[in-house]
Amino acid sequence: MTSNDIARIAELARLQFSEEEIAAFTNEFIRIVDYVGTIASLNLEGVEPMTTVSGAVNVSREDVAGECLTSEEALSNAPRKNEAFFKVPKVLG
């Protein structure tokens, strides 16, 4: 685990850290990963991974139209918007 690895994970997570923060994080991260990694060495061959405690697979319902948010409600918390759209900074140059 190096500071380059941490920088790469930060990029994937869309988070930014200063060089000092990355350095501090690297040591902390090594310790955390060491600790949770104790189960990485267990031999668990043949144990089926458990994705949910309920055992439910696909839960479907009838395709019936119901109430949903109006576009005004859906836009009500937008940091920037115009009448019917979320506004974002320019993506393509």
Binding site: V36, G37, I39, A40, L42, L44, V47, E48, P49, M50, T51
Partner: peptide
């Protein structure tokens, strides 16, 4: 990690 944790979960 993740798959191992799902196995230990079981």
């Amino acid at each position: 990690y993740y798959k191992k944790a799902q196995q230990t979960r079981r």
